[in-house]
């Protein structure tokens, strides 16, 4: 199947350029698409788009609509109001959706993640929250991530390493479940093989701040839905795409051209090709 990926944006999404570049680098046709291009009458014919034009969606990082209310809430509300059925169908048919940072927040607000019910790709209301960091402020740092998915997530299937390094940069990234039901949720996520990345320290051990930069429960950095085709993570794989992204900290493999983040985009594209 020809790979066609839409990187959705509205005002304030700001990682679309580098995300489009990453996707193109691994052979996809990818373009940044303003949400208005999918529904608004004022858009000229040649700029109109439909979700049906694509077989993959990425919601990039940024501060959609400013994130002045809960991060991702406004972007997801706009998507829900105009695209809800289309997105449900998209997920049900097995097409992949990736949400990075603000995109993860959008997918959570949209009810696409944690996505534990196969029959309901979008839950009625959000089942988890990416809450304000324990430090109570925006923080930009690098994070060690341990890959713990057993094969369900279609975005990390080709990952050879146990531990990767991706940057994080957010104020609201603390995975939080309804009070009292935390272990229930985590057990189900583990059982369903929905846990993808967890924050660890430089030795690969689960650790607290700053290794877990936001205070996420169970050190969760990224999860997928039950069918493995919707994936959200706070860290930025597109900022670890090339080897030179890893330049200023001690690491091996600087000789290679690519960095730890490439695998996410590559896996997405390879998965679509096989559909």
């Amino acid at each position: 199947m020809e790979v066609r990926i839409a990187v959705l944006r509205i005002e304030g999404t700001n990682c679309e350029d580098e995300t489009v570049k990453a996707l193109r680098n691994v052979g996809a046709f990818a373009e940044a698409v303003h949400l208005k291009q999918l529904y608004s009458d004022m858009i000229k014919e040649k700029e109109r788009r439909s979700l049906r034009d694509y077989n993959g969606i990425v919601i990039p990082g940024g501060f959609s609509a400013g994130d002045y209310v809960r991060a991702g809430a406004i972007f997801s509300a706009r998507m829900r109001s105009v695209l809800r059925r289309d997105i449900e169908e998209f997920i049900r048919e097995g097409y992949p959706i990736l949400g990075i940072c603000n995109g993860f927040q959008v997918l959570v607000e949209l009810g696409a993640l944690p996505g534990m019910d196969e029959d309901k790709p979008l839950s009625e209301k959000p089942e988890m929250v990416l809450a304000i960091n324990n430090s109570n402020r925006f923080e930009c740092r690098l994070s060690y991530l341990k890959h713990e998915n057993r094969g369900n997530c279609i975005f990390t299937g080709a990952l050879k390493k146990d531990i990767v390094v991706y940057p994080v940069a957010h104020a609201e990234g603390k995975v939080t479940f309804p009070s009292g039901l935390e272990s229930l949720h985590i057990n189900r996520l583990v059982e369903n093989d929905q846990i993808v990345f967890r924050y660890v320290d430089e030795r690969g051990n689960y650790a607290g701040y700053p290794w877990n930069p936001n205070g996420s429960i169970y050190n969760i950095a990224g999860i997928c839905n039950i069918t493995g085709n919707v994936f959200g993570l706070m860290p930025h794989p597109e900022r670890a795409f090339y080897a030179w992204h890893h330049f200023d900290y001690p690491s091996e493999g600087k000789e290679s051209e690519y960095g730890d983040g490439k695998v996410v985009f590559e896996s997405m594209v390879n998965y679509i090709k096989k559909l």
Partner: peptide
């Protein structure tokens, strides 16, 4: 101060303002 600014958005930063061991730069 430095960590409150996103110094990596646009994915074009090669040398960051903080360099060295992760979290101990």
């Amino acid at each position: 101060i430095i960590r409150q600014y996103d110094h990596q958005v646009r994915a074009s930063t090669v040398l960051r303002p903080l360099q060295g061991r992760i979290n101990l730069e």
